[in-house]
């Protein structure tokens, strides 16, 4: 069972993603409400996959992605993004994000993306 860490500042989004993942046989091992906590939880929990929102307080998803990749180059991080953030997504891909999911997302898309990487 794949273990997933959800990083998103919106509790609503975290719950949405959690619902979808748990219904599809993923294990959500943790949630974090900003990049800094996300990085910390990554070190504690060693999840298989991270879903990472881009726009967050304290530390953005991009920064968190870079930090996570700096100590774990194998980290599988999927960015959660919205239309209009294309350049941030591009930077994320250059920084090692495995893929991205566009909000508002569909259950099928989330699962496909997580299964593929």
């Amino acid at each position: 069972m794949k273990r997933v860490l959800i990083v998103d500042d919106a509790a609503f989004m975290r719950a949405s993603i959690r619902t979808i993942l748990e219904r599809n046989g993923f294990e959500v091992v943790g949630e974090a409400e900003n990049g800094a906590i996300g990085v910390k939880k990554y070190q504690e929990l060693h999840p298989d996959i991270v879903t990472m929102d881009i726009t967050m307080p304290e530390m953005t998803g991009l920064e968190a992605l870079k930090q996570i990749r700096s100590f774990d180059p194998d980290a599988k991080v999927i960015m959660i993004t919205a239309m209009g953030q294309e350049h941030l997504v591009k930077e994320a891909i250059l920084s090692g994000a495995k893929s991205f999911i566009v909000k508002p997302f569909k259950e099928d898309h989330v699962i496909q993306t997580l299964k593929k990487i």
Partner: peptide, 18 residues
Amino acid sequence: NEIFRIMHTIKGSSAMMR
């Protein structure tokens, strides 16, 4: 920054809720 972020979050959540 904060206003931008809040609006961004509301945009995302409300789009999910249609």
